[in-house]
Amino acid sequence: VSGRPPRWIPKVADAAALNGYAVCANGAVLYEIGTDSVLSVRGLDPMLLHDVVDALESVLDGVSFAAERVGATAHEADVRQFVTEPGYRNPWDDAEGHTQARAELLGHTAVKLLASKANMTSDEMAMVAAEVLGDAVDITFSTGDGLIEVSARGTTKAAGLSEVADRLNIAPDDIISFGDMPNDVEMLRWSGHGVAMANGHPEVLAVADEVTATNSEDGVAQVLERWF
C-alpha cells in the first residue's frame, strides 16, 4: 500500500520479488503486479479538477499544480502519467514529469492532484485547503515540505486495502499496517493492528495501536519478527 503511482511499483516489486496486488496513489489505484494491469481507478474528472484548482488558488497565493494519471498498465506509452504546469515546485527537486499548460494538465482525469507552495508547511496547506474544499474531495500529504495531495472523495489507503481484503477474503482484524504520515491514518484505523513509526506525524501516533522504532531503526522489521 503506497502513496506512489503504479509506474513506481515494478522496480520495487522486482527488487523485493513481490507479486500480487499493489494499492497505489493513496488508494486511488489498484494494480496487479504479476499481470501489469490497472484493475480499478478512483479519479478526479476535469470539471472537479478545475473547481479544486480555483478554490485552492483563492486561498493559497503562488500555489502550483501537478497531476498524476494512469493508463491500463504501469508504463503505458500513450499516457503522460505525471504532468506539471510551468513553474511547478517539486519538493523532491527531481526532473520527473512532463510540463504542460494548466488547461492541458486539468483536461484529463487524474488519480491525484498535487498542490505545492513554498514557505508553507503541508499541515498549514491542508488546513487552509479543507476550509474551501470541505468534503468534496480527500486531502492528505506524505511530506511536510509544502505539498498536499488531493484525491476523489472517499479515496484513502484504507479504501484501497479494503478492496484487496475483499478480493482475498481477509478480515480487517487479520491485517497489520504500518505508517508514518497523515495519508496512513485511515488505514491504521481500519486495520486490525495499526503500527506507527516512532518518527511519524503526530496524527499517526495518535491513532496507532502500537508505536515501533523509527524508519532508520528497522521499526517495521522489529514488529514483523514477532510473527515471522
Rank of each mutant, 00 (worst) to 15 (best):
L133F: 15
R69E: 07
L18D: 00
T212W: 07
L114N: 10
E149A: 02
K11L: 14
S64W: 04
A74G: 03
Q222I: 09
V53W: 08
V128K: 13
F82T: 05
D14A: 11
K112C: 09
D184Y: 02
D180T: 01
A208P: 06
L106S: 03
S162V: 01
A115Q: 09
V79L: 05
G43R: 04
A110D: 08
F228T: 11
S142Q: 03
G144N: 14
G34F: 15
A130M: 13
K11P: 01
L106N: 07
K157D: 03
V223S: 10
D61L: 07
S40F: 00
R167L: 13
T121A: 03
G107N: 02
E186Y: 06
V111R: 02
S151T: 14
A28H: 01
S64F: 01
S58V: 04
R80P: 00
R42K: 13
H201G: 14
G34E: 14
G97L: 01
E217C: 04
P182L: 08
V41Y: 05
V29G: 00
S116G: 11
M120D: 03
R89N: 08
E104V: 15
V53P: 04
V12G: 01
V111F: 02
V70H: 02
L56N: 12
V79M: 06
T214I: 11
P10F: 08
E32F: 11
N199I: 06
I33R: 07
A95N: 13
G62F: 01
L49T: 12
N19C: 01
V128E: 05
W227Y: 15
A130E: 14
A213H: 07
Q81M: 04
V52E: 08
V53T: 14
A55L: 06
R89T: 04
M181W: 03
A95S: 14
P202S: 03
M181N: 07
E76M: 05
L114I: 00
F65P: 07
I9K: 10
